[in-house]
Design a binder for these strands. Structure first.
Lengths: 207, 207, 207, 207
DNA sequence: GATGAATGAGCATTCATTCAT
DNA sequence: TATGAATGAATGCTCATTCAT
């Protein structure tokens, strides 16, 4: 077995454990047992327990940001374009989230208990996404497709809250209504809320 | 000092520590040092470390749910009534959140690392609020003030995401744009998003 | 068992182990096993392994310096007074050393392997003794009982070398000729060397 | 690179590390890093960590004993011859010590923490020197140049204490008065003490 | 009710040594 | 000869919990 292999084997073993049990409750001995290597091997590849988490988070960030950035390419001219573009992004994002549940759990459900560096890395990933949202909103505001009543930063904060919170509920709140929806369905409902709030798409409701 | 006093002293000492450091990194010895009592005293008042957290969370839940429930009393007849009512609630909620930062941090930033019972208690508090949102949306749907395209549960999930996520950013994400807003301002922006999405209040934007 | 008791029990158990095996090879588990207490008890009384050694060394220093200082009280007027006074001191010192073999071993045979703080504490104890020698020599020089050809500091360094080295050989070099001598005998020979070098007391040798 | 080269490279890398940090605190990984070879290479050349130290010590012993033995060649007829001869030896010895500080540090400051075999090898080197002293003293006693009041073994022990202790202070006790002296100066003062004790050369002091 | 000394299971990390290539 | 990844026993230290006083 060469270096790269075991490093990856360890990361693959660690991710589900970290996602489900959290940082402190995941023991290095659990990880190596799951990975099928000796305890010392862990420390050949990673400086300490914190390091493997950071490694996993940074790798995950690369993929995730790629998903986000590639989702925002389209030119938008009308409100309809915008919602369509947003919906594409959301479908991609939710699809990615579903097939990377463990990473998303690490990202969204790591609390104060973890080390500063880990919290900081997570915050930075989430910030990057929120910033992508903010840029997109800013562009739409420049094109006069969205009002400038509220700053794009504030709107992005709310949008990020909406998106991350919904992903969390969709993927992890067993028993909730949302958990039964497909990625396409959540995406559609998110976009409806994103642009029209609780009242939804104008066409879908007369008042 | 009598029982009740020290029990409260311990809880008062524990809350900020738990909020800032999380469950595992808060040692019982930290709590008693801060409270100024002996280690043994802790175990006279609480079965174990988990117990004090549950106690704090349950006490906090009583106050918080009271805030939520009392905010939803008004009868609403028009969209305008609804947004006004919602805005009242949000102001109350954000005001409460701001003056109970530690408790909110415990509620919103406790991750997978904590014990099952603690996560469960937190989930249940958040569920109760989400359920209040759901009931309110259902009432509005019955009165035909909101479309029924999407289930009230799903809408409530999204609303809860929006509200909790925004509180988190507002209170804890130092450096973010939102953190500079007053409770009233966040409330207003939340309600705008709640009912009209990114596009905001109809009057504020013509397209 | 009260605090003081166990703290002392641990120190009493640790000293012989540390003296014979050295710092690294003495395991905390060895100490507590010998002391008959739990591993945690050790850490209640001492911050870490280094701490107990420092504690032992400081306690030992108190006694040892007391022996040295109380040995230097006499007024000396003649060379004969001086050698008699020195011999008294040496007898006391060697007697103390013999009945505190473990402490002396810690003091004289702790090498580079120990922590900086420990080496520093040991150096400081030995320095104190060497300084006492230096003061005494200085006084004798002022009284013109010893030449000032060489600085009292240098002479003290050589005297300290002679004394500590001889103690080491006397107590720990099994098989050596010196080990068979009594405290009085070593003291006498040391003093002879101290004042007359290899040639010994003038009366004992004509050339 | 051939065997011999790397073996020497490893020893050259190890000596300063062992001297300064001691046996336990010098890691094999430190040595190979310093030597610029792989960890496995170390174990091709040396059975284990102990082995390299023994190798270094034995090599050092060869040189050192050579210095000592070659210093004792002169025929001595008078006291003046003896002190001159001794001074030659001391100058050689102190000069050697100064240019082999690391080896001397290993020899003089290795404590109980090291392995038995290492301590034993060191003891044997020091013994050899002490024995050389003893032989020399014995010869002088036979020639009636030194009294036989005390056994040559005991006198050698004291002389060895004086010499080794002074070397230690001269080379390693930074801040001490002795450290500022040249090899010639220490040698002179040592010889003065060796033959006349604290009172020094007869010519230098009248009383 | 309160104290604080004592307990001991638990865990991260280190490092000498091995061995397949 | 040389490499460096892999091994796993060893150990210092933490901290929730207990309990005699």
């Amino acid at each position: 077995m060469n270096t790269t292999e075991n490093q990856q084997v360890l990361m693959d073993a660690a991710l589900p454990l970290l996602a489900q049990k959290g940082f402190h409750k995941t023991k290095v001995s659990d990880i190596v047992k799951e990975a099928g290597v000796a305890q010392g091997t862990f420390y050949w590849h990673f400086k300490n327990k914190e390091a493997i988490v950071l490694h996993i988070l940074k790798e995950g960030e690369r993929y995730l940001l790629n998903v986000i950035y590639s989702g925002y390419r389209k030119q938008v001219g009308t409100l309809s374009d915008m919602t369509a573009s947003s919906q594409d992004l959301m479908i991609t994002l939710f699809t990615y989230a579903k097939s990377n549940k463990d990473y998303m759990q690490l990202l969204l459900k790591t609390g104060q208990d973890s080390d500063e560096k880990i919290r900081s890395q997570i915050a930075s990933t989430l910030q990057a996404i929120e910033q992508a949202f903010a840029s997109n909103i800013a562009r739409a505001q420049e094109l006069h497709m969205l009002p400038t009543t509220y700053s794009n930063q504030t709107l992005a904060a709310m949008l990020a809250s909406l998106v991350f919170g919904t992903i969390e509920r969709w993927l992890f709140h067993e028993g909730d209504a949302v958990t039964t929806l497909t990625a396409e369905e959540v995406a559609q409902q998110i976009v409806s809320f994103e642009f029209f709030g609780l009242r939804g798409f104008p066409s879908s409701h007369s008042h």
